[in-house]
Nucleic acid binder design. Structure first.
Lengths: 241, 241
DNA sequence: TTGACATATATCCATGACGGACATAAGTAA
DNA sequence: TTACTTATGTCCGTCATGGATATATGTCAA
């Protein structure tokens, strides 16, 4: 921050010198129609009015950081129970032109159906498709073309995708993106969407079944006009998340 | 800056409430005598007087988060140029009994010689050995037995070791713990100290040489009473840190 | 000068994970 | 009943790894 700019702000609020404010920003992610997606809210006010931002909010002085993330998940995104993990803390001085804000980013993973339900429940939310192939900076497109992102939220989205790609093949993150019962094909689709590349089918099945995370239900999918696949369930034994 | 954006800033009340304070805590790590170690400072004041803490400090309102980490590295640990990476943000309400403090933890990696130099330069610092095998919670011992840790710094140390263990075999982190020239044996010693287990020698050599990170210098170590090993140098080509 | 010694370096092989091809199974639809 | 499509299981070549073994190369002592 420039010196005269600091003096300018100090004239309006002396407490600006107390220290940085802390917010939590949430990257709500899912895989929709074979592509990674995130939920964004449209900014009505300055700065960055009209641009799209991650749901977020200030951390209260008597509130755990994780609790703040869950509160924002429930209040601004109308959902709870999602898998939530702290992502990274963004603390550049110029992130927000109003004042100094340090933002602790979290990402939350949701199955596509709950994702859609949240979209319908809140018209202020929109779905942004994230290009998995070219992810730095994150290119997001909505229903009507590209979505300009507010603040450094494109960076945050990029780091979230990066983390997801790095962890998905050795952690059970993918199960948070699927319904309770799913086929091996659906599981592979999620992996391929996150990684942005197709995977070998035999090797993928072997790997997943050998890992011990899957429990066969004995049931099979319905509605397909071909041989139905068996439905599996996530068995969180020896789970390392 | 847009016209209406400037108008908006002029009337903005920077802070409507008092929020949490933000500090940066530094986990200064190295491998000393075949064991992972960290630098701690002794607390003189309450709370936790007499216990040992990570070097840390408040983040100024006009200071980048990363800059704060580098400042603390320079002022409290008397060193610079180390490899520094953000670790995790600890935001529990009861962390500090005095007031609400959210701490962004960083870890810094240093070769053992610079580690020792910092120890000699500042008598307030002490070296804590970290048991790599049983790392949760981190057990640290100094020269005279166990070191009780202040606040939640044992947790932070544990997360730092966990991160280091998780990243060392697929990232060039180990080179930040070695001098500029080193033997393959020294590199393996560092890996084994971090992982807390011995590694297969042939496989380790093959893996490291195939990875393309090592540049042979043609020189050999001196002072050994047996066949001297070749000295290698880290070649940061295609480096992913 | 020479040989013992300790470690570095190179070679070889068994094992297991993986990519990929192929055959078979099991549903729907005509 | 047959065509069709995908699921599921089997087989094999390739490659990374663990591990053993052989050779190379320095110091040190006799």
């Amino acid at each position: 921050m420039l010196q005269d700019e600091a003096v300018f702000l100090a004239g309006y609020d002396a407490r600006a010198y107390d220290g940085p404010s802390v917010t939590v920003d949430l990257v709500l992610m899912s895989v929709v129609d074979g592509a990674p997606a995130a939920l964004l809210t449209r900014r009505d006010e300055q700065p960055h009015a009209g641009k799209w931002a991650l749901p977020g909010g200030f951390v209260a002085v008597d509130e755990d950081l994780d609790a703040a993330a869950r509160r924002i998940l429930a209040y601004k995104a109308h959902m709870d129970g999602a898998y939530v993990e702290q992502l990274y803390t963004f603390g550049g001085v110029g992130r927000d032109p109003r004042m100094r804000v340090i933002s602790v980013a979290y990402f939350a993973l949701l199955p596509a159906d709950r994702f859609s339900a949240a979209l319908e429940a809140d018209p202020a939310l929109t779905l942004a498709r994230i290009s998995a192939t070219n992810c730095n900076p994150a290119e997001v497109t909505g229903m009507k073309g590209a979505l300009p992102l507010a603040f450094d939220h494109a960076d945050i989205l990029g780091v979230a995708m990066q983390r997801l790609r790095g962890k998905i093949d050795y952690s059970p993150l993918a199960f948070a993106l699927l319904p309770e019962r799913f086929t091996l094909r659906a599981l592979q689709d999620v992996h391929e969407a996150i990684l942005g590349q197709s995977l070998n089918k035999s090797a993928f099945r072997r790997r997943m079944l050998d890992r011990g995370w899957l429990e066969a239900t004995g049931e099979r999918e319905t509605g397909a006009s071909f041989r139905p696949a068996e439905l599996f369930r996530f068995r969180p034994i020896n789970a390392k998340v």
